[in-house]
Every structure is written in C-alpha cells, then in structure tokens.
Design a protein around this nucleic acid. Structure first.
Length: 764
RNA sequence: GGGCAACUAGCUCAGUUGGUUAGAGCGCUGCAUUCACAUUGCAGAGGUCACAGGUUCGAAUCCUGUGUUGCCCACCA
C-alpha cells in the first residue's frame, strides 16, 4: 500500500493534481488523447466571466462548484464537454472600484482626464489594474478545481469580441433598432455618467412636501429648487377645480418677480394627490419630460437649471435677476433649504408636510441621489412595434415555449413580467473604461456647435456608425462607451465566434472551413447558463434577446439560477460590510473539495445559501473519511493486480456481494439522475450518505468481521476483498464531480496498471 | 401599488409527479481508544413540518385564506 495512506488526507496536494489535469489536455474538447475518445454528443457551458476588478468571493465558488459538477459528470458520461472560462472588464463597476483607489491616492479620474492624453492614461491604468486582477482570479478558479478549457479563455475586451460587439451594433443600427435620442435619463452626479433603469436603486426617504402658491393654484412638491425650470402646471382634464384655468396662462408671484405660466391638462395627473395640480419641469423629472412630449406644441421644453454636478445653474435663464442668482452654484439640498426659507418669508408657501415619505432614486454603486437629466444617449429600441417584434417577443416566446428552460421555474414568471414591461435600454455611458461606441458625429447646422460638447442631439448632427473616421471634414468621434452588459449580453455567441477565429462572419454562420475549429457551429446553442438570480435581467434576459436577434437561435437551452451566499447572520456579503469570505483562505484551510461540498449540499435552485464554516469542516472530515476508506480497502492484500476496465463479473464474487454491488450502481444512477435534473444538493447528499453511512459504517464493518475471522471460509474472504475494492472505485466515481481532488488523489494510488485519470474514467 | 419566495430538529437548511418510523451538517447527551479513520465509532435526545379551513383512503407536499420575514418590479408630484 502507498505509504501516503498512513497519514490523514492532506489537501495541499490539490495544486499538483490540478496542474496534472490541466496539462493532460482533458479539459479541452478539441482532440482525443490516448485511450480517451471524445464523445459525439456535446455539453457546453460558457462560464459567467467574473469581474476583473477584485478577487473572487464565495458566490463565484458556488458557480464553479455547480458548473464543474455538470461538466465533470457529463465528461465521465462520455460527452464532448466545453467549459469556456472568461473575464469581464465590467465597465462602470470597474471604473468605480478604480476611482476609489484614485481617491485614496488623493486624486480623481477628473484630474487625470484634464491632463494631455489623460483619457489614454486612465484607460491604460485601468487596463493594467484589470490584468492583475484577472491573473489572480484565474488562479482562484484553478484552486477551486474548475475543469474548464483555459486555452479558450476570453476577455470581454479581446479584439475579436469587440469586433462581434461592433458588428451587432451596426446591425442593430441598420435595422433601426438602436437610436440616439434625447430623453430624460438617470444621471449620477458623482460618477458623471448616465445609468440604465436597472442600475437605479430606490430608497424610501422622508422629506418635506411643500405646498406652493402658484397664483390661484396651490401645488405640492418636494423638489422646490426645480421651480426655476418649470414650464407649465398640469392638472387632470376632468378636475372641476381647475376647469376654468386649463389652457390659460396664469400670473404667478414668485421669487423671480411676477411671471406667467401655462396650465395644461394631462391624463397622468392624479387629482387625488396633494391639490391635484403638478408643476412641470421637463429638464429635471422623467414624468414631466413625458408630459412635455405630449404637449410639445403648448409649452416650453426643458429648461436646464441644475448642472451635471448637481449644482444650481441659473445664469442662462436668470442671469439678470439678483433675487434668483443668489442660489446659483448651490448644491441642490442647500438651494432647496434657502428657497424654502425665502419663499416662506414671502408667504408663497401655504403649508409644509414635514414627514412626507417617498421613493428616491439612487445610484446603485455610490448611493448618490440620481438627477434626471435630458441628454442624448444611445438606446436599444425595445418598445416600438419593431423592437418588440424583433427583439423582445422572440425572447418571450423562447421561454414560454420552453425552448429555454429556467430553473427554478418560478423565475420564469419574474422574467416574463420584466420582459413584458421592458423599456428602451440606455447603452451609453460617459466613462472611459469600456468598449467605445463606434460612432462619429458631424454638425449639420452651421454654428450650432460652436461651443462643442457631447452629447450632441440628433437634430444638430449627422451620425456615422463605424470604427473608422468617415470621409469628409468635421467628423468628431463619439466618446461614450457601451454599457458593459451590451457586450456581455452577447457573450455566448461572441466567445464561440472569437475562439473559432471566424472573422467577417455572417449569420447564419456557415459550416465552411475547419469544422473542428468552428466552436460556434459545434457548441451553439450552449447547454446550460448557470449564474446567480440577481443578474436575471441585467444579463440573462439580454443574452436571450441579443442571442436570438443575432443568431436566430437561443443562446442556451437551460438557465440554472443559484442563490446568493449570505453570511451566518443571513446578511448579503459585501466589501463595505466586511463580511466577505475569501474562497482562497477556505481552500487552504479545508481544501477545495470541502468548500465545494459545503456550497452544494443544502443549496437548491434560486434559494439563498448561508455560509457556515462548521459545515465546511464537516466535509473536510468527509474527505478524510474517504481517504481512510481507501486506506482500509487497499490494505487488504491480494488487491494489487486489477486490470482496467474493472469488471464486476468476477466469478469469485458471491451473490450476496453482487447485491451490494448492485446497490452501489443504483446509488450511482440515482446521483446521475439528480445531477441531470439539476438537483445537485440531493445528488451530493445521497452520495455522501451512501459512502459514509452505508459503505463505511455498514459494509466495511461487516466485511471486516469476515476478513478478520480465521474461521470464515476463503471464498467469502476473497469475495469481500473484491467487492470492497469495487465499491471504493464506485465511490470515487460517484463523488468525483463534487470532490474532484480527493477522489483523484485516491484513484492515482489504486493498484490499476493502465490507469490514467479519474476525470476521464467512464461513469458506468 | 403589483409580484415572487421563505416559514420543517437548538442553529443553518434539504425534502418536484401526495404514500410506510420527515432527513443532512453543526450543536447537545451517554458510552467506546492498541480495531482504516478522534478530521473516529456506537447509542440517543430533539420536530402538532407558521396558522386556519378544504380536497383525499392518505397532505410538509395539492387548493383557499391569514400571519410573519426577505426580495423584486412600479413615472404618484
């Protein structure tokens, strides 16, 4: 027997085992090696690319654990498996992380941008930052035992990926499904960029609600400071209180002196709220912007009186009015306070409801109050009949028809509800870190852009889509970059195309050329998309929409959504709370096998899982248990000359032992069925239970008696030795998808002459 | 305002076509150490499966309602 077995299982050998696996080439579906023949059926997973802006957390470990179970299982079942790893540049998220770093250094992105070539410098620095993180992350994924094909690792900023993304953008533009439009969008005054609707976090706040006198009308508002941007007062068309003033201009006594303002009727005004009258500030409120769009002919458009930094900017409209100009440059909150005070003194405020509760829109990253602004941005059309027909509906149909199966099923309802109420998707970001939007602008109205600033509205410029500067004079390049989800939303087909080396592709992708290298043709649609449920809309929905739009096929057949990992107090793990667990520390202490088991047992689809160190300890003990089972079984002499493959048709096995063997096969089949049905927790649990409490506690104990009893007959002893050995091999197979290291470590010490590696052993 | 999920042993959670004594990890109690393993073994305590109705021969599981918690979505100023 191998002398290693005399000591407890030492998980520090995981690293060497991984290196051997990686070097063996078995992670790749590219070619058969030795006795190992690639299967004909495919099984593929595109790994959700972790953000290259920090370390992996235990959530990633859940992802790796589950996906590796699937991949290892199907590989042992003889399928040709592709698990493609990647890393995400994670645009805005990464820039936010990097800006925090800059803050610590006492500088900021804006300071760097002011320098000559500042943009390039900043980009370069973030690039280096992500490359460092990426390398660390890859190391972590390896430590967790992921049997993914590193030769096909893809970064979201790889040139070929960008090509695919550009091609899609061009296609969308050509189809009229992407447009540049001036709309009320979410603006983060700290980060100086717009955000999509999904990146807005709402929080209930208590603020004063001011009842303000606008001449004969009193109306309620929280945002007193926006009054300088008012262009109308709106009431419900059937509101009897205001029927005489609808359509008229009323005279208003205000801080600015006497002014006139128009009263309009709009169905969206709720007569029951406040006084039933609402001020209309198109530049600083999304609803008001919508009202203006409906009344364009009657009232003035957006009057921007708050700047990008969230300060009052009144010069343009009130430059000569000292009463008003004293607020100029104040932050919103301060301005509101002063204006309230001044108006109260002048008797312009009827009353104040000090404890009015309402939802405030915040930046999901920094918590700054988002300022609605009217800006020209790039949008994917998801609301017109064209956008609905070409992008939205196919995605809905694919899920409804079960062409894409979502696990757990209840997430389907959530998905469909979101899809059915989807809004246009703002894909422009005013940041440096990301894929530049390939567009050029040129002013069409002479002198319209004397004070040239992005963004430019459609009316003032013509647009050219493409990487290269078009012919002619006056073209200026777009500076916005894509929302990171616009590129990751294309991940399944983009990675497969990029790794296939297909350039100038056209959909549908042809089978021409080297079919072996055409991963797209081979593996698209992929089998499973496994990710956390919190990015169902951000990512999964976008992949389904863009995948169907671009390729005409679903990007994956099954979506498996795992829950979030919470700490033992059920708190969501986050850096700011300081409760983040580094998987590396756990792996070093207890081994990757133990961590993986702990994250899989008790983890059902879509349900959050709590992280408890005791649990990991328990499975570390199990690793050792298995090790000792092997130690005992291999210590029985005469087990030294098995040939591969191992057959159970030994004539010397007694019928009672054949039954035991059948039972093990039954467990194995059950484990397989559970895996195939995405019930990993049960699969792992019955495997665990069988090995420890049946094989070790019962069978070994019984056979031990037989083997140690000098009176028992020889056939019974021989049979016992063989069956114990076969059960050990079965146990290794059953557990391998869950605990790849310890099972491989034992397998490598089995007395099989022509053995290779457990990862390519046949499951059967 | 709408929706989703959860409520099972002291704690954290499994339990998917309704079917015999409801499971796991940790914790707890007692016993065992020249025995493959103390990172162990054996034995055990501990559950009216949130509550109330209903369907059924039979319900943790299906239906209706209630309560509690968490989450998601939503242009009430």
């Amino acid at each position: 027997m191998n002398p290693d077995f005399l000591k407890p299982y030492d998980h520090s050998q995981e690293k060497e085992i991984y290196t051997r696996w990686e070097q063996s080439g078995y992670f790749s579906p590219q070619k058969s090696i030795g006795n190992w023949k690639l299967g004909t059926e495919n099984f593929s997973i595109i790994m959700p690319p972790p953000n290259a802006n920090g370390s992996l957390h235990v959530g990633h470990a859940v992802m790796v654990a589950i996906e590796d179970v699937l991949i290892r299982y199907w590989r042992m079942r003889g399928k040709k498996t592709l698990w493609l790893p990647g890393a995400d540049h994670a645009g805005f998220e990464t820039q936010v992380v990097f800006e925090k770093k800059l803050e610590k250094e006492g500088t900021s992105r804006f300071e760097i941008l002011q320098k000559e070539n500042g943009r390039e410098e900043l980009y370069k620095r973030i690039w280096d930052f992500t490359q460092e993180n990426k390398a660390h992350m890859e190391h972590q994924v390896r430590q967790l035992g992921a049997s993914c094909d590193w030769s096909k690792e893809t970064f979201t900023l790889d040139k070929r990926i960008i090509d695919v993304v550009y091609d899609t953008f061009q296609q969308l533009y050509a189809d009229g499904l992407v447009y540049r439009g001036k709309k009320a969008v979410n603006w983060c005054p700290k980060h100086q960029t717009t955000l999509s609707d999904l990146e807005v976090r709402y929080e209930e706040r208590e603020d004063p609600l001011y009842y303000v006198k606008y001449g004969p009308i009193t109306l309620a508002t929280v945002r007193l400071e926006t009054k300088f941007g008012d262009t109308a007062i709106a009431v419900h068309p059937t509101d009897a209180r205001y029927k005489d003033v609808i359509g008229k201009e009323i005279e208003v006594e205000a801080i600015a002196g006497k002014t006139k303002i128009k009263v309009i009727a709009d169905e969206h005004v709720d007569s029951a709220f406040g006084t039933g009258a609402v001020k209309v500030t198109p530049a600083h409120d999304a609803d008001d912007f919508a009202i203006w769009l409906r009344h364009k002919d009657e009232i003035e458009g957006p009057k921007e009186i708050i700047d990008a930094w969230g300060r009052m900017s009144l010069k343009q409209y009130f430059g000569k009015n000292a009463e008003v100009m004293k607020y100029d440059g104040l932050k919103i909150a301060e301005a509101r306070k002063q204006i309230a005070h001044d108006m109260q003194e002048k008797g312009l405020i009827e009353k104040v409801d000090e404890h009015y509760k309402h939802n405030v829109a915040l930046c999901y990253k920094c918590g700054s109050v988002l300022e609605p602004r009217v800006l020209a941005q790039w949008f994917v059309d998801l609301t017109t009949s064209k956008g609905q027909e070409k992008i939205v509906q196919p995605a809905i149909d694919a899920v409804k028809s079960k062409q894409i199966k979502i696990i757990p099923e209840f997430q389907e309802k959530i998905f469909l509800h979101w899809m059915e109420n989807i809004r246009d998707w703002n894909i422009s970001r005013q940041i440096v870190w990301g894929i530049p939007i390939p567009a050029w602008f040129r002013e069409t109205k002479a002198g319209a852009i004397s004070n040239f600033q992005f963004p430019i509205s459609n009316e003032n410029a013509e647009i050219h889509i493409g990487k290269e500067k078009p012919q002619g004079e006056g073209w200026v390049q777009e500076t916005d970059v894509f929302d990171t989800w616009f590129s990751s939303g294309q991940w399944p087909y983009a990675t497969l195309l990029a790794q296939s080396g297909i350039s100038n592709f056209q959909f549908p992708i042809s089978n021409e050329g080297n079919r072996d290298k055409n991963l797209f043709d081979e593996f698209y649609p992929t089998s499973v998309m496994e990710t956390a449920y919190d990015i169902l809309f951000f990512w999964v929905a976008r992949m389904i929409m863009l995948g169907l739009y671009r390729t005409g096929k679903v990007p994956f057949e099954t979506v498996y959504l795992h829950g979030l990992v919470r700490d033992k107090d059920k708190q969501k793990m986050s850096k700011s709370k300081g409760n983040v667990v580094d998987p590396l520390g756990i792996v070093e202490q207890y081994g990757a096998d133990a961590l993986r088991m702990a994250l899989i047992v008790g983890n059902s689809a879509g349900q959050d899982v709590t992280f408890a160190e005791e649990k990991i300890k328990g499975y570390r003990n199990f690793s050792n248990k298995l090790w000792n089972i092997a130690r005992f079984v291999l210590a029985q002499n005469s087990i030294s000359n098995f040939q591969f493959p191992i057959s159970s048709e030994f004539s010397s096995i007694l019928s009672e032992d054949k039954k035991i063997l059948e039972r093990a096969k039954g467990v194995k089949q059950q484990v397989g069925e559970y895996i195939e049905n995405y019930r990993f927790s049960q699969a792992a649990e019955i495997a665990y239970h069988y090995v420890w409490h049946e094989f070790a506690d019962k069978i070994i104990e019984e056979k031990k008696k037989i083997l140690q009893d000098t009176n028992e007959n020889k056939e019974q002893k021989e049979s016992a030795k063989i069956v114990l050995y076969l059960l050990l091999v079965e146990s290794l197979k059953i557990l391998h998808p869950f605990m790849p290291f310890v099972t491989e470590a034992i397998y490598q010490r089995l007395p099989i002459k022509n053995k290779d590696s457990l990862i390519i052993e046949s499951w059967e």
